[in-house]
Computed example of a mutant assay.
Amino acid sequence: MNKEFQDLRKDYVRGDLSLERLDADPLAQLDQWLRDALEAGAVEPTAMALSTVTPSGAPHSRMVLLKGLEKDGLVFYTNYNSDKGKAIESNPQVSVLFFWPLLERQVRVEGVAQKVAPEVSDAYFASRPRESRLGALASPQSSVVESYEYLEKTWLKLKEEYEGKEVPRPAHWGGYIIKPHIFEFWQGGHGRLHKRFRYKWEDGNWIIETLAP
């Protein structure tokens, strides 16, 4: 099996990237690449691997969905009592990674996660499907539960309880905005000469650096 993995090869030939073609604003560049991924038919184009550090110092990664690209950062939503929420409470430094195989592109972002205003979380929560809102109430995310049947029963009980009523946003559920200080844009290149450009926030400006692959 190891030999099979070792022999896997793929050359990257779909696209190119140059310093001259990069937007001076990395958030604008990310917005364009997200739109490219959507247009290309990427599965879950807004999916990103979120990495946090636990209170004990261990790294922890999981997939989340980008739900907003604002002028000052990237927004996602979760349970504040989840493993990721506890990690962010202890250490707000986070990293996210987008990967779009169809376009042979990836983007890495590092920054500080902060909770969004409650009214922002309220508005997004109200826009979610009713079943998802009930799920946020029913699931003690990251906690050990006796069974999935228990969760299903809790969900059905809440569905009955809120029949004909608005499902309120629980206080432990809401959004974070990642305020970035580093972006890295990666475009696969022929012969493993991948194109890598890093944006760094220095003295109130974005500085772009070219990185070796």
Rank of each mutant, 00 (worst) to 15 (best):
R21P: 00
R35H: 11
A42H: 11
L74V: 05
N2S: 14
A49C: 10
D72T: 11
N81D: 15
T78G: 04
R14Q: 14
D83P: 03
H60R: 15
Q93A: 04
S90L: 08
L97C: 14
G57H: 06
V43W: 06
S18N: 11
S90W: 03
R14S: 10
S61L: 00
L65D: 03
P26C: 01
W33T: 07
Y80V: 07
G73K: 08
S82Q: 01
R35N: 13
D16F: 04
D7L: 13
A49I: 12
R14T: 08
A42K: 08
S90I: 03
Q93V: 05
A87Y: 09
D11Q: 11
S95A: 15
Y80F: 15
E4R: 14
R62A: 08
D11I: 02
N2F: 09
T46A: 04
G85L: 06
A40Q: 14
S82V: 13
Q6H: 10
L22N: 00
N2E: 11
E39W: 05
V75S: 02
G41S: 12
K84E: 14
D7W: 05
G73Y: 01
E44Y: 13
Q93S: 09
S56P: 08
K3L: 15
K86L: 10
A37T: 10
D72R: 09
S95E: 12
D11V: 06
S56Q: 14
L38K: 11
K71E: 00
I88R: 07
L50N: 02
N91D: 04
Y77T: 01
P55M: 02
P92N: 15
V43C: 03
P55E: 00
R35T: 09
L19Q: 14
N2Q: 12
A58R: 15
D11A: 09
L34F: 04
S56T: 13
A37G: 06
W33E: 11
A49N: 09
A42R: 11
Y77C: 07
Q32N: 09
N79W: 06
A40H: 14
Q32P: 07
T46M: 04
D7N: 15
D25I: 03
R14D: 12
Q93P: 01
Q93H: 08
D72K: 06
L8C: 01
F5Q: 12
N81H: 11
S61H: 03
L66M: 15
